[in-house]
Amino acid sequence: NQASVVANQLIPINTALTLVMMRSEVVTPVGIPAKDIPRLVSMQVNRAVPLGTTLMPDMVKGYA
């Protein structure tokens, strides 16, 4: 199973992502692939993302 990107903490709306905010985990449904973590750094979330939430492409500005 492919690992997805999961929030390692509460990420407030419009926050630029950093490595410490994200972890990889095998979850259902599948979200953004963990291999894309380096690409996500500095991108902003367009909503508040609670701890443990799988990041989906529509949550990150400029990803999709």
Rank of each mutant, 00 (worst) to 15 (best):
N1H: 12
L19D: 11
Q44F: 07
A16G: 11
D36K: 05
D36G: 05
N8S: 14
L19P: 14
M21L: 08
A3I: 08
M22G: 01
R23Q: 07
P50K: 12
T53Q: 14
V20E: 14
A48K: 11
D36H: 14
M56C: 03
L19Q: 09
P33I: 08
V6P: 01
V45F: 01
N14G: 15
A16C: 05
L51R: 06
A64D: 12
G62K: 07
P33G: 05
S42T: 15
Y63T: 04
Y63E: 03
P33F: 06
V41E: 08
M56Q: 12
P29G: 04
Q2I: 15
D58G: 11
E25G: 09
G62L: 09
E25F: 07
A7R: 00
P12A: 14
A48R: 10
A3R: 06
N8P: 02
P29M: 06
T53N: 08
T54R: 04
R47D: 12
A64K: 03
A16L: 15
R47I: 14
V6G: 00
M43L: 15
K35F: 15
A7C: 04
Q2L: 15
N8V: 11
P50S: 12
P33S: 10
Q9C: 03
S24E: 12
V41G: 02
V5K: 01
K61L: 11
M22S: 01
M43N: 04
N14T: 05
V5Q: 01
G62A: 12
I11H: 01
L19T: 06
T18V: 05
V27L: 09
D36T: 06
E25K: 15
V5C: 03
T28P: 01
M21N: 12
G31P: 01
P50C: 04
P33T: 11
T15Y: 09
M21R: 03
L17C: 02
S4K: 01
G31T: 01
T18E: 09
A64N: 14
Q44P: 09
Q44R: 07
I32A: 02
M21V: 05
A3K: 09
T15Q: 09
I37E: 03
P12F: 05
A64V: 11
L10E: 13
T15H: 09
A64L: 15
P12W: 05
P33V: 14
T15K: 05
N14D: 09
L19A: 12
V60H: 01
L51W: 14
T28I: 08
Q2A: 08
Y63W: 13
L40Y: 03
Q44N: 07
M21S: 05
L40S: 00
L55A: 00
V27C: 04
M56I: 09
S4A: 03
M22L: 15
Q9A: 08
I37L: 09
T18F: 04
Q9F: 13
G52K: 04
D58K: 08
I37W: 03
Q9K: 14
R39M: 13
R23G: 10
Q44T: 11
M56A: 09
P38C: 04
V41N: 05
S24W: 08
P12C: 05
I37K: 05
A16R: 05
M22H: 01
I13F: 14
M21H: 12
M22Y: 02
P12T: 07
L51V: 15
L19S: 10
L17V: 04
P38K: 06
V26S: 12
R39P: 03
A3N: 11
P29L: 04
L55Q: 01
R47T: 14
V41R: 04
K61H: 15
V45L: 09
L19Y: 08
V20C: 04
N1D: 14
V6H: 02
P57W: 08
Y63N: 04
T18S: 07
K61D: 07
L40E: 01
D58T: 09
G31N: 01
M59G: 03
L40T: 01
L10T: 09
L51M: 10
V20Y: 13
E25N: 05
T15M: 07
V6S: 03
A16Y: 11
I32D: 01
L19G: 09
V20D: 15
Q9P: 01
M43H: 10
V30E: 12
M22F: 10
T15S: 10
A3Y: 12
K61S: 12
G31M: 02
M56S: 11
T18Y: 03
A16Q: 09
V49N: 02
M22P: 00
L19E: 09
T28K: 15
A64T: 15
V30A: 11
V26Q: 08
I11S: 01
T53S: 15
K61I: 10
G62M: 11
N14E: 08
L10K: 13
V6F: 02
N8K: 15
T53V: 14
I11N: 00
M21T: 03
N14M: 09
V41A: 04
G62I: 04
D58C: 05
A64E: 14
T53I: 08
N14Y: 08
P50V: 10
V49H: 02
V41F: 06
I32E: 00
K61T: 14
L55K: 01
P57T: 13
P57C: 04
P29K: 05
L17I: 13
V49E: 01
N1S: 15
M59P: 00
V26W: 11
V41D: 03
I37D: 01
V5S: 04
M59W: 10
Y63H: 05
N8C: 04
T53M: 09
I37S: 05
M21P: 01
R47W: 15
P29I: 09
R23D: 05
